[in-house]
Design a protein around this nucleic acid. Sequence first.
DNA 1: ATTTTGTTTGAACGATCGACCAAAAACTAC
DNA 2: GTAGTTTTTGGTCGATCGTTCAAACAAAAT
Lengths: 249, 249
Amino acid sequence: MRLRGVNNSATVGSPMETNLSEVTGSRPKRPKADRRRAPETGTRILDAAEMLFSWRGFYGVSLREIAAEAGVQLALTHYHFGSKESLFSAVIERRAADHAARIEAALAEAKSVEGSRRVRREAILRALIATIVDRALRGGPGWKNYVRLLAFVANHPQEEEYVSPFRTHYDHVIHDFVEALGLLHPEMEKLDVQWGFFFFQAATTHILVESGMLDRQSGGALHSSDLDTMADRMVPFFAAGFLGLGAAD
Amino acid sequence: MRLRGVNNSATVGSPMETNLSEVTGSRPKRPKADRRRAPETGTRILDAAEMLFSWRGFYGVSLREIAAEAGVQLALTHYHFGSKESLFSAVIERRAADHAARIEAALAEAKSVEGSRRVRREAILRALIATIVDRALRGGPGWKNYVRLLAFVANHPQEEEYVSPFRTHYDHVIHDFVEALGLLHPEMEKLDVQWGFFFFQAATTHILVESGMLDRQSGGALHSSDLDTMADRMVPFFAAGFLGLGAAD
DNA sequence: ATTTTGTTTGAACGATCGACCAAAAACTAC
DNA sequence: GTAGTTTTTGGTCGATCGTTCAAACAAAAT
């Protein structure tokens, strides 16, 4: 005879949103240092979900697959994260803030680069692609999946509801890049600056899903997993692209 | 007590693959002109599937949703197309050959354009994007959904099995574009030509899903649905991009 | 040692999934 | 009009979906 309200969110002692745990610490009991009790489960589920979501998207993966991949019981996914959508959000929340901050830091450094307009423009573009590639290749095992998931979601129509956590963390990053490029190019139409960066960002997100199209076309000579080489080619290509939209060089 | 073999594909009188109906006409009965009996059902299902798949992908749509959208019984999807995967393939097969042929025709015309290398390069790039945009905007109601579905699938990892029908129709198109650009630019590394066109194609497919990112960033000044304007900006941008990879101009 | 709290187990629930079928209906051919 | 074929109907199949629960277990706190 349990009351079954509108949404009796998660049973009694569920963790749920341990993300914002360092707010002001107004919890009734549980005084101090308790990081050492559940060393894995939550992380294991996040890792498995991150990997599977990045390949087949939100709809293409079941909680049973995630639990099996993580080697835990199905019910633990609900205990730790409440629902499938919350788990998806948690996967994003784990890295998004750090990722966005790294990109912003790289942009800040790029804005202080001296040199010709071409050099400074390339520095700005490199700040985005190099930071993303760096995380994908040198951020540890989960990061590559996260980057692919980021690209996967960015390529989805805006109508989908589960993409909103991404927008929260990355929209202002994109805005800052457009602003920096606009300041560098007062001679350009503001709309054309937006177009140019949009093309750059579109290519970036598409390529990161490793669709394998490139590998097929080149007969093995090129590999979409060779992200460092790709970044080295993208920067001069898209920097030159701005010339086609009226950028002075 | 029906025999239930490995795959007793579709019950007795199912149409199934009426696509290749103009082969050599070796069917036993059914002599001539019978186009006027089932004016809709199959088409209605295809239209509904095309629309729903383009927004939420293969996994995100159920046959019941498709049937409801088409206003027909669920079982009719199985009767006309056999399975969900076959229906997905049929959606692609309906337009892919025509679409690829239009792009190839535009490329052939572009290759005969006279003028500077810049002019000829822009003509080649325009052949792809303008043809796609033309179908999306002026091809009739279903085409816009098809183009979005095309982009949706192109942005998926190659491991997915249901993307193969797309590859069959479009891989050689991409190859021909790379070849044309390579002939126009003998001074460039062949790999760089591939990179350049890959960036162009990546931006194209990403943008066509109408992720709405552009609309948000520009505060309403730009609309990703304004595809004609986008094509006009893409062509000079990506044509100039090749300069960054060593193209003479 | 006992209570309290947090975590895991194993099993179900109602709903929905793709697939399938026998019978009715609609249509064509004779 | 009757016979034969194609299309539609309404329903069911087993499997799987996300979610939920009571009970068992583990770990701290008292």
